[in-house]
């Protein structure tokens, strides 16, 4: 339906009348800075603020917490959360060894981001550049790339991780590498499909006719179009990678205690779910909230970076439209 609206004459972003018949007076306000557009969107701004908080926590939180995360205090074991009588350290409760859940959550933030962010970033950069290259050139480059992707995809990634992490030591760097490697095909496929479609567009042909080199065309015409899709994909992948890391940690080949990650906290807390729900619920919430914030920001970014869609953000009833757009994308 949003498609229909866009196609209807005269409802899109105002084309002007007449050859060179003037810029509208408000032509400038149509193209405000990204930051100001972000402020106009409540949901995206909320997402951005939450992500910023998470990042700040990861950067400075462990410093503020000191040794609180590892300090055991059996007097305060298994305390329920939200009880001011226990002091701020135990505001989110404590585990069976009396360690502060809040402190462990803060420390885990850094570990989690230190694994998930590089893993997603490495997979995204390698996968999407590779995919864009393969899709642009078609032919044997595309075929070989897709078969390689198939091989990686068809191999059980967890099994691969288990083998690799047993052979090498289960260090954070190795976890990042193995998670990145197994997720590359996701970006590769998406980027290839979009790039293959884009390389047949007329404006790419136009660039070819004045002799632009393939790499220049990819940089100028393909990557800017593919990037928003890839970013949206990356936010979804962020959740996946966090969960995959927690699975590995659960198997004992991921993050090694006493270090903690959100995923590890969830899986460690699982056995106490009946008696101390707060042990796994809070880290679980952290994962969910971070993922949703990232997703919301990505959905906004996707529209904001597309000049053909940007006008939607300027509309009063835009919330509905964005939701509708999202629904269309997920189809």
């Amino acid at each position: 339906m949003s498609q229909t609206i866009q196609d209807l004459p005269g409802t899109g972003p105002a084309p002007q009348t007449g050859p060179g018949a003037g810029a509208r007076p408000d032509a400038k306000s149509n193209n405000p800075g990204l930051f100001r557009m972000l402020l106009r969107d409540k949901f995206a701004s909320a997402g951005a603020v939450i992500l910023l908080l998470v990042l700040l926590t990861a950067a400075f939180g462990p410093m503020l917490m000191g040794d609180l995360a590892t300090r055991q205090n059996l007097l305060f074991a298994n305390k329920a959360p939200f009880n001011p009588a226990n002091g701020w350290e135990y505001f989110l409760g404590s585990d069976s060894l009396g360690r502060s859940v809040l402190a462990r959550l803060v420390v885990a933030t850094r570990t989690t981001l230190a694994v998930a962010v590089p893993a997603v970033a490495v997979a995204m950069v390698i996968g999407s550049l590779w995919g864009v290259w393969a899709g642009y050139h078609r032919g044997w480059r595309e075929n070989v790339s897709m078969r390689v992707a198939d091989v990686i995809m068809s191999f059980p990634s967890l099994l691969l991780a288990v083998v690799v992490l047993y052979v090498f030591s289960p260090s954070a760097a190795n976890i990042v590498l193995i998670l990145a490697l197994t997720r590359i095909p996701i970006y590769l496929r998406t980027a290839r499909a979009e790039s293959a479609e884009l390389q047949s567009r007329t404006f790419v042909d136009a660039a070819r006719t004045f002799g632009a080199r393939p790499n220049a065309i990819i940089r100028r015409h393909v990557i800017p179009v593919v990037t928003p899709t890839i970013l949206t994909l990356a936010t979804l992948e962020f959740c996946y990678v966090m969960l995959a890391e927690s699975s590995l940690s659960f198997l004992g080949i991921g993050i090694q205690p006493p270090d903690a990650s959100w995923g590890l906290l969830v899986s460690q807390g699982r056995q106490y779910l009946q008696t101390a729900w707060w042990l796994s619920i809070f880290p679980g919430l952290a994962i969910v909230i971070t993922a949703i914030s990232a997703n919301m920001l990505a959905a906004w970014l996707r529209i904001a970076t597309d000049p053909a869609q940007r006008w939607r953000l300027a509309l009063p009833g835009r919330r509905k439209l964005i939701v509708r757009l999202k629904a269309k994308e997920s189809k």
Partner: peptide, 28 residues
């Protein structure tokens, strides 16, 4: 040089008119 049929598909929607017209100079 060439002018294409479809004035919608032949211009990259993510570039400004100025960028589009001066794009050839990035190569030449």
């Amino acid at each position: 040089q060439m002018v294409f049929q479809d004035p919608f598909a032949s211009l990259n929607a993510r570039m400004t008119a100025g960028d589009i017209i001066s794009e050839p100079w990035a190569t030449h």
